[in-house]
Design a protein around this nucleic acid. Sequence first.
DNA 1: CTGTTAGCGCCTTCAT
DNA 2: ATGAAGGCGCTAACAG
Lengths: 333, 333
Amino acid sequence: MATMKQVAARAGVSISTVSHVINNTRVVSDDVRQRVLGIIDEMRYIPSAVARSLKNDKTHTIGVLVPNSSNPYFAELIRWIEDAAFGLGYNIILCNAHGGAQKQTAYLRLLMEKRIDGLVLVASGADDEQDLLLRHETVPIVQLERALPGLDADLVLAGQEEGGYQATRHLIELGHRDIACVSGPADLPRTRERVGGFMRAMAEAGLTVAPDRIVHEEFTSAGGHAAFTRLLGREQRPTAVFVTSDLMALGGLCAAGAAGVRVPAQLSVVGYDDIAGAGYALPPLTTVAPPKRDMAELAIELLIDRIRGEHAPLRRTALASTLVVRASTAPPQ
Amino acid sequence: MATMKQVAARAGVSISTVSHVINNTRVVSDDVRQRVLGIIDEMRYIPSAVARSLKNDKTHTIGVLVPNSSNPYFAELIRWIEDAAFGLGYNIILCNAHGGAQKQTAYLRLLMEKRIDGLVLVASGADDEQDLLLRHETVPIVQLERALPGLDADLVLAGQEEGGYQATRHLIELGHRDIACVSGPADLPRTRERVGGFMRAMAEAGLTVAPDRIVHEEFTSAGGHAAFTRLLGREQRPTAVFVTSDLMALGGLCAAGAAGVRVPAQLSVVGYDDIAGAGYALPPLTTVAPPKRDMAELAIELLIDRIRGEHAPLRRTALASTLVVRASTAPPQ
DNA sequence: CTGTTAGCGCCTTCAT
DNA sequence: ATGAAGGCGCTAACAG
């Protein structure tokens, strides 16, 4: 790969002149500029960002650490993050935390070695995430959705509790009284807050929630399937269920279908996340839609502000989610 | 951020000694090693991969360019690519081509500046992909699924034509004779080959395909929905349909449900890609499953071989897809 | 067993 | 309007 030095030699000018025509950083006579540009083209010279980075101490690269990038929700988020970052001249290094604290630690270490300019952290909130390294690092960090305890970093929230509340209100307003809640593992904060909103709405409406109306399963379609199977097997069935993730809800819909339970006639279902598939479920799923794109853009904005050295105090912004009513909910009976 | 020089000074040794204890690249007396290690820890020194890269001309970073990373199929592929790469010490820079040739060109340029060690290219095959830059670049490239004409690079194929054939055979063996095919835009090679397999199976079975049994739509759930709506509106309905992508098939299932057409009783549906959602569709979708993980691993393996300088001739490997029979297909009537 | 030194490719003062 | 030269952080000869 050609270097600036070679270009300079071929053009019969100094290295610094080449540098200046490339960066438009000082006046260069027109003929020299043309000549240099010609040589650059001819030699297929491409400046080295790594050399530049060494000099400027900036890589224009940001790390994005998510629990699992193949989960449609994260995949969609990543898509917007990538988009926003690219628009501002940054590249994304994609990292899957999936694989435990060990992989995560290794990853963070690597990212620090690569001198990323910043990090977007989408923590699952699992207990094994108390990574020490993180708290000692100096790179700007923006957390999405979930604040790691002890980590001082800007934060973009999506009102999980409020979302759960909205979803449940919708069901209550439809006339449901016996409402169940299907959620992920009890120790995941994301899920816990959503369930919190559910409980608040129920309590507020004077509705009691029997212990067997709350069921925890894996945060996957398989988990949702299992949860619904369990729930629908009870002698007394709920008339509606709030599911804390679309992935689980889709699995639930599948289980309901297999069990001959018609949605929404016999059972209303509300999901959470508004992943692309939700709109084409059978029936199309009513769900809580976090403002993924706005969240991604805001996160990148905040991060790049920090990177550029804004010395603002810690910011935590909460964006509102909206309920998207589709065809999986209806009044009971 | 601390530097090696500072560590050396603090430890009262030379820079090269520090380098050697870090890289275990020559014998160092135990006390010196311990002292240096101590200081490193104390100063939170983290070596700079960018300085290293400048020296070694290796970044341990590979670019992954896909049409759209939020599409579940690509998202799943990416997940495995990331996994395989990480396992071998490489990071992934994620790039969405989505946005046209312009963005793509800009991206490739950036990747070259960043001196990625290699590129995994998942081309959509759209016409605007004839990127000139590519053919002149010297980075190792592995193409997944689709060979860009004129680009000499290793290639990992997934037998699209064969997959379409298998899917159609399945339908024929079930007893269907009037089989339709719903596919993406006619100009996308990926789709075209799958349709090719369909045509071959039909011809081989002596079945004719009326022109109105082939319908093209957007490569999305919305497209699938539209296609099915159109197809089911015909006075004479097909008894089965092969859809060239699960995303479209899911949209189709949704349309069928809305139109009161029962699957598989009245209509059998086969999809393609085996995305996670397919297994939990209503009914669970019979589909062709490309070996995503194997493809990803093979691609990374080939790429890293090249990066390490293996001077092998161009390799094209075709992996076989398998038909996953679930509940969306049955004998006619 | 340890230190000195010459770059890797680029930017950027300081001269001219 | 253009050059020369130092240095970003690290590795790898080359010398002791």
